[in-house]
Each structure stands twice: as structure tokens, then as C-alpha cells.
Write a protein that binds this DNA or RNA. Structure first.
Lengths: 226, 226
DNA sequence: GCAAAAGTGTTGCTTATACACCCATGT
DNA sequence: ACATGGGTGTATAAGCAACACTTTTGC
């Protein structure tokens, strides 16, 4: 073999998404060390000995958000390993997409006290994290079409209106409330009624639903084509 | 830090698909060394110093197939890094999906003389390659719905019938020739007529097409739901 | 009553499916 | 002539977008 094989560290970087006040938001940390000191970056960390990628991602997610016992959506996206992507050496980054409901106390008990929610379209991040974030958003938009991912943005119980707000925030479009309601409740396994009702300060009370067991939506909820 | 970060080698493993005699086929090599000596495995190799993942995948593809100057579909799929997946140590595998037309001389000039085409549903592979192969096939099936991937299975010029044969082989279903023809030629950017015609030993000559520039098919070609 | 959000009905259009049928070639 | 795959026509069914309309709450 002419050239030797490269020796890597592997980092797991998380794109943690939620909806806050109707806008798609991503959790960013401010870097405390070189390189890119002071720049915002995706939360992440190295894969440790004996650890699988998903375990590392779950650990980082707990450390950054202080979540306990929650089982949010966590999905591997893509691996980035350009030789020059990190000046410290050969570090591959395995990107994960995490989706959470809007937390009451957002980032409490966090390992990274400097973690902040930022708009989804933020740029100027450290390393190649702009690319990773853009790829993750595109994946999330696509996942809304074919999977019940939107429910992961909501609490355990949610209304069809909540769900529609997720689609509108992530896709950046307005959807017809009536047609959306019919489509979603008609799709087998997407949502199941919980039997309860939510009273809001205004308007008619809405029936509450839980996530159904489906893993793929057939037919898909297709994004409007402008 | 309690536990140290793990030190990895990174391998690129290729799921190289084509259609041979109407059946979806995958290129496998027989392992010549420990571990798993003699077992079939996906072709692959280590990422070398200074090399990006895609470069490594392209290099492996050339080495295994002897291709020159061809630009086949090559797409990163998923990264596998379970601590026990390789007895030699911590080796992460980044899986790539490659799609080729059925080559006249299949694996000529190959670095691995033991490379063989096997049916797509083969199992009993070394390492976790059964899992990787299954994931890759599922991805390929999905890509046919939303992208012009099927054209990558065909030569530069192809007939609509060729394209339909790809869908039928990968999806494992029979499609209506007439409706398929209309759908495909009606989709913007999927195929463009080359103006030429292919005469076959039987039946009416078929118009030839080239791949159009589209990257996503809207609307998608949805798989029949049985 | 009025505003607001939830949910239902209706209508007209677009699209898909099934399948009949014609087309152009080799044998 | 006939077999074979290519391609078009067409009728029926299904799906979808637009939007009017009813329901049920808070104020």
C-alpha cells in the first residue's frame, strides 16, 4: 500500500430542532476553545471507547439539553470527513438529526450553559456546520412528507392544529386547515385520537391526538409546489 | 474526561448495483484474509491519508470494476461503527451506493479478480454487510420514486422499456407499459428524447432517450401498494 | 353578539388506473 | 400472417385544492 490509511477521531454533531414561537429553531453552542473560539457551532462531541454512534449521539443530546427519559426522534444523517475540515487533524463528523417538542425549560441542567436556540436559517457557524445544518433542514423537510416526524415536534398529546403549525414552520408555507385536518386524520397510523380535548383561550376546543404507529405515510403529504 | 475518545480507521464499503438479465445484482468479493476468510463481502477499503470519503469511494469503485471515465451514481448511505463490528479493532464503515449500467465486460481489469455479481437478496455476508446491503436496497427502492436514479442503471441512451425494466427489477413488481411510458415522458426533466431509435430483434423499434437534468421527480413515481 | 379556531360539505378539476387498441418491425 | 414489444386513446375512479359553511368555545 503506497499511502497509509488515515487515523481518525470520530465526532457526533447534533442538529437539534424544535419549534419555538412558530419558528423552526436549532440549538447552537458558543465554542469556548480553539479552533473557532467564540463562534456558534452545532453541539457535539467525540465518540468514546466502546461506544456506538447512536449511543454517543444520545449521550450528547442528554448533556446538551438535560433531557431525562425522553425518547425524541434521533436519526443519522450523513458523515463529513474532508481532510481539512478540522485544523486539529483528521476528525470525521457523523451528523444526527434530533427533533424535540418545545421544552418548557428549554436547556436546563445543560452541560453547555452557553447553549442557545437560534433560527433555523442561521449561518456563519464553525467548521463545516453551515453545510451540515443546511443538509439537516432539507432532510427534515423531506421527512415530513414521508414519515410522521412532525409528531416528534409536538408533546405527547397534540392537536391537529399543532401538527399543522409544524408543517408550516418547517416548510415555510401556509396550509389549508380543513384539508390538512382531513388528510392527516385519514392517513392510516399517523395519529390516533386520545379522546381528550384541549381548551384554548380562543376558538373551539380541539380534539387531542397521539402519535400512531406508522413509520411511513402512504400516500405522502406532498409539499405544495410554488 | 473519564473514558478516552476512541481511535478509528474508516473504511468505505460499496454496494454496487446493476441489472443483469432482468435481476437486480450486487457486486461481491470473496475475502482472502482473516477475518471472515472465504466469505462473500461488499467491496471496500480504508480511507487513506489526505483522502475524502467520496474520493475513497471513487477509488474503490475504479479498483473493483476497472471503470475508466464513467461517472456512475455514487451516494453516501450510512455509517456503521458498532464497537464489535470488526474483530480487528475500531473500524467505522461508511457505506456508499453505486449504480452502474450492465457492463459488457463486467469486472475486467479488476483489482479483485474474485469479484462476482450476486443476486440482490444475497445474505450470509461478512461483518455487518447483510445489514448494509439491506439498507442500501431499501434506499435504492426509495430513490427510484423521487429521483431519476433508474437512468443510472441504463446506458447513455436507453428506451422507456429499459427504464421500466429497472423499476420492475428493483421494486419487484410488474408495471403497465403504457401508463409507465406516459408518466415518465410527461415528467419534466426525467428523460429527453435523443432523436434516435433502437431496432430490436422483435417488436416495434423504440425511441431512445437520455437522462434529463432533473434531480427530483415531481410528482414522484409512487410504488404500487399491494 | 362577535371573534377565533375546529372541523365538515361541496364542487370542480386534475390525476391515476385498467385495458382496449393501433403501430412498426423481424421472422 | 403473426408474434412482439412500443406507444396512444379512453372511460371510470380516485384524489386534491379551493372555499363556503357549521360548530364550540372565550370575551
Amino acid at each position: 500500500m503506497a499511502r497509509p490509511r488515515a487515523a481518525f477521531s470520530i465526532a457526533v454533531d447534533l442538529v437539534i430542532l424544535t419549534i419555538r414561537q412558530g419558528t423552526l429553531s436549532v440549538l447552537l453552542v458558543e465554542r469556548g476553545h480553539e479552533p473557532f473560539t467564540g463562534r456558534p457551532a452545532l453541539p457535539g462531541g467525540f465518540v468514546l471507547e466502546g461506544e456506538d454512534l447512536l449511543e454517543a449521539a444520545e449521550r450528547e443530546l442528554r448533556e446538551e439539553t438535560g433531557l431525562r427519559g425522553v425518547a425524541p426522534h434521533l436519526e443519522q444523517l450523513h458523515t463529513y470527513a474532508r481532510p481539512d475540515r478540522d485544523p486539529r487533524g483528521r476528525i470525521a463528523s457523523v451528523a444526527y438529526l434530533a427533533v424535540l417538542p418545545d421544552l418548557p425549560r428549554p436547556v436546563a441542567g445543560s452541560d453547555a450553559a452557553d447553549a442557545q436556540w437560534a433560527p433555523g436559517d442561521t449561518s456563519g457557524l464553525a467548521f463545516d456546520h453551515d453545510t451540515i445544518l443546511a443538509d439537516a433542514l432539507e432532510r427534515a423537510r423531506q421527512r415530513l412528507e414521508n414519515t410522521p416526524l412532525a409528531a416528534a415536534f409536538c408533546d405527547d398529546e397534540f392537536t391537529i392544529g399543532d401538527l399543522r403549525a409544524v408543517y408550516e414552520a418547517v416548510w415555510g408555507v401556509a396550509l389549508d386547515p380543513g384539508n390538512f385536518h382531513r388528510k392527516v386524520t385519514g392517513l392510516a397510523g399517523f395519529v390516533v385520537p386520545s379522546g381528550r380535548t384541549r381548551y384554548s383561550t380562543t376558538g373551539r376546543p380541539a380534539a387531542l391526538y397521539r402519535s400512531g404507529g406508522a413509520t411511513t405515510l402512504i400516500p405522502p403529504l406532498s409539499r405544495p409546489t410554488p
